[in-house]
């Protein structure tokens, strides 16, 4: 199982990275492969390539501000949440995605 995510926030200095870290931690706890791209104020880091996305079973996107190149994820199961919620509730979001992925298998 693999989950990818993109995080971004208005000031792009704190929330973006806290949300990314929360997703990484929540996935690692369940031994899920994870890669999170951050679109902070210094720009895009850890860019998700076509291959990354092709292998992913589900996508987590923050919805505080526009995610750049969001059309990369067309056709994928996506959860959109505010960065603040991701930081607080990443484990339950991941749990929800795991249930969803297993139910579609």
């Amino acid at each position: 199982m693999k989950i990818v995510g993109v995080t971004a926030c208005p000031s792009g200095v704190a929330h973006t990275y806290m949300a990314a870290e929360a997703i990484r931690r929540a996935c690692k706890e369940r031994n899920i492969d994870v890669k999170v791209e951050t679109q902070g104020s210094i720009g895009c880091e850890n860019y998700l390539t076509e291959d990354d996305i092709k292998d992913a079973d589900a996508v987590i996107l923050t919805k505080d501000i526009d995610i750049q190149e969001a059309d990369r994820f067309k056709g994928k199961p996506i959860v959109k949440a505010f960065a603040g919620d991701v930081i607080k509730k990443a484990p339950s979001i991941v749990e929800k995605l795991v249930q969803y992925i297993e139910s579609t298998k």
Binding site: A58, K89, S92
Partner: peptide, 15 residues
């Protein structure tokens, strides 16, 4: 408190 209010508000959509 957070774990009680589970992730129901995070809906999965197909992008």
């Amino acid at each position: 408190k957070d774990s009680i209010s589970n992730a129901d508000d995070f809906s999965v959509t197909i992008g």
